[in-house]
Design a protein around this nucleic acid. Structure first.
Lengths: 344, 344
DNA sequence: TTGTAGGCGTTATCAG
DNA sequence: CTGATAACGCCTACAA
């Protein structure tokens, strides 16, 4: 057990391993990394033993510069503390792990300028793929972003965007419109006739699609959307928007559709803080079905989106050379909970 | 606007920039990256213009191999979909961004074996620092982990662990014991006398400390912990453990202390699903103060932990050469909400 | 099957 | 202040 030569400074290099095993660099490289195996077993064993003994770990950076591309997938999200992105990221991480890829993460903070900057920075890593899950923000410097994305694909990277998006990127789409329509229809069936929607700024596709879908579905069931108030995609935006709504007067029996669960939860809190009741008094519905929706009371009616699976698919869209763009879209499903009780 | 030479394949290299600007590689490198600046302005401008024109982005991998260390910080968490880790990660990401570092993330899934494997894999990136936020799991292959960590520090990396931990790593500690004690004391003051705690397996420091602190604080106020039930750190573990507890009979007026908010939220749901009421009937308290606790009803009484700040500090502990280990611990504060009403 | 040598994009040393 | 040039650690034809 006498460790003779624990490398004092710096990690063990392939060179060290080769020397220790008494073989050439090439041979060591082949057994430790190269895919196509064709090394004599005796050598192979010696190398593996040496590597183990020295605690060798391939220097990914060196490998990357040599190969020209790194075993990395970059993930861009608006806010990693947001459960929506958290669950999505979990799916991405799972897929990456399976594929032997490292996940690099960056936060846009919903700032278009930052987004462009980050894409450019991530480009420096020469990742195999880039996943854009940062709900394309407003004022979007669309041109700048597209240019950056273009540069990325030009150098051989793939980009996948979650949700609607433009350009030549691969999309992992959700049927936002259809899901919202189904939700609207269901609410109408439950007896609601008046709705207000709390959305994000106009121009954000995800928001627009959900608003349009909901409006249509709700109308098809005989209901009508009285108003669309614009806020943002956060819990606080939902809270504040709802506060104003309440101040302006919100009739009993109205259902408020929050563009996302996070927003809807903010709405619920505002309603309660205003001394009103969620459910029988004012109903609330959301979209996404984040885990929290299960634990609040009343439970939040929403459209279930398989977030984790969505992330998993995005990972593949961003890294699989032979990705099947025709794969059927993920099934969305409305789930009714206590926040929208049937109306007499 | 006629882009003359958009590099058809592959990204623009420093070499390209130098040629385009008519200077040497060294000069180009100095203006674009090197820290100590001493390049004539005329040259500097030419280089910057060329870089801009070519859309040049330094190849981080190449930089890393040349420098010997990458501008990367690796983050290891148990589950990124868990809001606790999500908020923590947000803090890490913020700090990293400020420091010009890229964040690489890996998920342990609370599996000790995986944890060791991941640390070894991350080591391959030669990151400047490594942040361990994966509540050291049970059966922990402590030896294997420590060896891996040791190897990492030996090659010049710093490792920071969030919460209690062993070895030579830097710690960003929480006063779990003190916080829990304060919570226990407060609950006793509110009139509670009987408590049950839903904890994680014995041997997990964070859990053990909170249990011990709570027990002591509660006792100091005249209360007594009737039982400690072991589950895990997840919402579902909390739910299931509470189910059993309820099946075994839980007297009115008991307060259930969930080792973490996530667990406590599971407990709350179980209580409700069993037809009991959270608050007046059975009280519930947690620990961490994740964002969700604000939006559920009744609000969850808990110990506030500045999660985002915790992550921010961890980032610095893992990357700042001159980190001040004596920095005062983050202040914890108990916040009482509706889940633990004062008892008559 | 194995080894030799050249190259990947940057940095850093050391003369001019 | 600038420019050759040798590393950095690894991969990969190409040759033996």
């Amino acid at each position: 057990m006498s460790d003779t030569s624990a490398p004092a400074r710096g990690a063990a290099t392939l060179h060290d391993v080769a020397r220790e095993a008494g073989v050439s660099l090439a041979t060591a490289s082949r057994v430790l990394n190269g895919s196509t195996r064709k090394v004599a077993d005796s050598y192979r064993e010696r190398v593996e033993a040496a590597a183990e003994k020295l605690g060798y770990t391939a220097n990914l950076s060196a490998q990357a510069t040599a190969r020209g591309t790194a075993a990395i997938v970059a993930l861009l999200v608006a806010d990693i503390a947001d459960p929506y992105f958290g669950q999505l990221a979990a799916g991405v991480a799972r897929g990456a792990d399976e594929a032997g890829l490292v996940v690099t993460i960056a936060i846009t903070e919903r700032d278009p300028q930052r987004e462009v900057r980050l894409v450019r920075a991530l480009r420096g890593q020469r990742p195999r793929g880039l996943i854009l899950a940062a709900s394309r923000t407003e004022g979007t410097d669309a041109a700048g972003l597209d240019a950056e994305l273009q540069a990325f694909t030009n150098m051989g990277g793939r980009v996948a965007v979650v949700g609607p998006g433009g350009g030549s990127a691969r999309h992992v789409a959700l049927d936002n419109r259809g899901g919202a329509a189904a939700l609207g229809a269901e609410l109408a069936r439950l007896g609601y006739r008046e709705a207000v929607v709390v959305a994000a700024s106009e121009g954000i596709r995800t928001s627009d699609d959900r608003v349009a879908g909901f409006t249509q579905g709700f109308a098809s069931g005989g209901g009508s959307v009285r108003e669309v108030r614009r806020g943002g995609f956060t819990r606080d935006a939902g809270y504040e928007t709802a506060q104003q709504l309440l101040a302006d007067g919100l009739p009993e029996g109205t259902v408020v559709f929050g563009i996302s669960d996070v927003v809807a939860i903010g709405v619920m809190s505002a309603i309660r803080d205003a001394g009103r009741q969620v459910g029988a008094d004012i109903a609330v519905a959301g979209f996404d079905d984040i885990a929290t929706g299960r634990d609040i009371r009343p439970g939040l009616t929403t459209v279930h989106v398989p977030l984790e699976e969505l992330g998993y698919r995005a990972l593949h869209a961003a890294t699989d050379p032979e990705w099947d763009a025709t794969e059927p879209p993920l099934p969305l499903e409305v789930v009714v909970r206590g926040s929208t009780p049937a109306r007499a």
